[in-house]
Design a protein around this nucleic acid. Structure first.
Lengths: 236, 236
DNA sequence: CTGCAATTGCGTAGTTAGTACACAAAGTTA
DNA sequence: TAACTTTGTGTACTAACTACGCAATTGCAG
């Protein structure tokens, strides 16, 4: 096979099929003990009334991660957020307008930190458990991101990104139960987090609860970052 | 925002930037106690002498997974193989011929089962540990797939796909040590696999070794599939 | 055919992580 | 002040992982 010059490579690349590329963001939040996803109503008439992920085309010279952060920023104003590439979806018929490849990114954010511009296509938080029949293959994408999240949250204490700054152990447990879809033993759950040693006792108590109030904690992000480096060293 | 008809969606999609899309296959093998990767010499003169992954453009109406299997089949003849999507790489300047997005797929295969057509661009197995300075961003892709493999092999006993049908526990341990880059306690390693109960004792012994020969085992694939279903139930 | 080198095969004790489970104290509400 | 809800805590059992040493088998060199 002959070697190709840069110019020849350019023209070679030009002859290959090209496809439009999008990024879709699956943004999980947590409120009222329920796992939520940030969605809009679809633009497309054939998907009238159906829910759709926040997505957009990737620009010509835009890095993929940058595109995901841009979309998140444009829609929510949020900038300091984890955002992870989860999977590519590329079935030839997944988009009614022709072939479009999409890259799913997943993110967790604290609902309290963000006020949404609700007027844009009914952008809002929707219960994950109640989702059905979304536009495109978006239900499948959300489900794959949910599985990814279930796995992820057992390896890293990512849940804190979904909670308010100060939270009770009850809220933390509710979050884990909502994401994992199981119920957990309260004493063992508390013991486990106590042994991780990543919570700071604020010496404050819950307010406005109609029962014995619990202590409020904060997540020790700096300690977590240190531990994470160790874990990665041991190939986590 | 107005709703769009299907026709309007088509023309909308048509206005968005398009990019060529490739699949690159990172195919790991194992031989002589070393982890190997299947690579070719790059076609491109600017990458003269450098190693490159097996890759190709995705066809117009080809599913992404199908493209990966096609490439693997075309290059190695192999069909019954695990093949997993690992990650998308899309930096705007990663390809000298212009923007090209690539999807990395990872696969493990048994070197003994395949004879290679060595003449095509020096297609061959190369030591993973000795790799450096590959074409494009392929070194980064291989490294990400290697991390993926390290993680994966601790969750599922995938290693068997890299070994001959019959293997000694020593070979199995060498494989794990090569992939994980650590040394393991021989007794604990054996105990662990014994407790998994996935090995079949063939009652044969190693031949041609210059020391006490070990027993040869086979992997119990059907039992593994059953177990896997259970694990998945418990959300593994 | 003997001794050396390499490697197999095996078991126990200690530690750590996870699970199951019950009761008293704090606050709210009627 | 009684009933209700929820917090906060400890122990015993089990499962998984770690560290570690010795006798037996084979090939090979002298």
């Amino acid at each position: 096979m002959k070697k190709n010059s840069v110019k020849a490579v350019h023209s070679l690349v030009d002859t290959y099929p090209k496809v439009p590329l999008t990024v879709d963001c699956v943004i999980f939040g947590f409120e009222e003990s329920k796992l939520k996803v940030l969605l809009i109503k679809s633009d497309l008439s054939i998907y009238q009334g159906k829910l759709s992920l926040l997505g957009d085309f990737v620009k010509n010279n835009e890095d993929l991660d940058d595109a995901a952060y841009r979309i998140l920023r444009e829609r929510t104003g949020m900038t300091n957020v984890f955002l992870d590439q989860v999977k590519v979806f590329g079935k030839p018929d997944r988009h009614p307008g022709g072939r479009v490849i999409t890259i799913a990114y997943c993110s967790l954010l604290n609902i309290q930190h963000h006020s949404l511009n609700i007027h844009e296509n009914e952008l809002d938080w929707y219960d994950y458990d109640a989702l059905e029949d979304m536009a495109f293959d978006h239900k499948q994408i959300v489900d794959e991101c949910h599985s990814w999240l279930q796995k992820r949250i057992q390896e890293h204490p990512l849940g804190f990104n979904l909670l308010p700054d100060k939270f009770s152990l009850r809220e933390l447990q509710n979050l884990y139960e909502a994401i994992l879809g199981v119920s957990l033993d309260r004493r063992n759950f508390r013991k486990k987090f106590a042994s991780m040693d990543l919570l700071i006792d604020t010496n404050e108590m819950e307010q406005d609860v109609s029962h014995r109030p619990g202590k409020l904690y904060q997540f020790n992000f700096t300690k977590y970052e240190k531990k994470k480096r160790k874990w990665i060293g041991i190939d986590f």
